[in-house]
């Protein structure tokens, strides 16, 4: 019984994992393809992290383009973590809350 489903279970886990990872990779693709964008994004995100008092480990990238990035900041602590969404403009360096 267990032997019969081994490949189905393995396949299902691989497909789900690959799906999630490819979606993330798709989001970050501009960073891998554009060296200039990668440098600008890195400098601006690090400056924002320092200015806002964030911890780098709480920052995740939701979306990125040549104009700017959508960042999620998670404050990890005991209890429900606070997750906030921000848009970061690469032209002005301004950080604003995501539209609801």
């Amino acid at each position: 019984m267990l032997r019969r489903y081994q490949w189905w279970v393995f396949g299902a886990f691989c497909l789900v994992t690959a799906g999630i990872l490819f979606l993330r990779l798709w989001t970050m693709l501009p960073l891998y393809l554009d060296n200039d964008l990668r440098t600008r994004a890195s400098v601006l995100i690090q400056a924002t992290v320092a200015r806002e008092g964030w911890l780098s480990s709480g920052v995740s990238l939701k979306q990125i383009s040549s104009e700017g990035a959508v960042l999620l900041y998670t404050s990890h602590h005991r209890g429900r973590d606070l997750v906030q969404c921000y848009s970061l403009s690469f032209t002005t360096g301004q950080l604003s809350s995501c539209p609801q």
Binding site: E52, G53, L55, S75, H76, H77, R78, L82
Partner: peptide
């Protein structure tokens, strides 16, 4: 962070 019940910032 683990010991805190509030968000921690630098």
């Amino acid at each position: 962070q683990y010991e805190s019940t509030s968000p921690i910032f630098r």
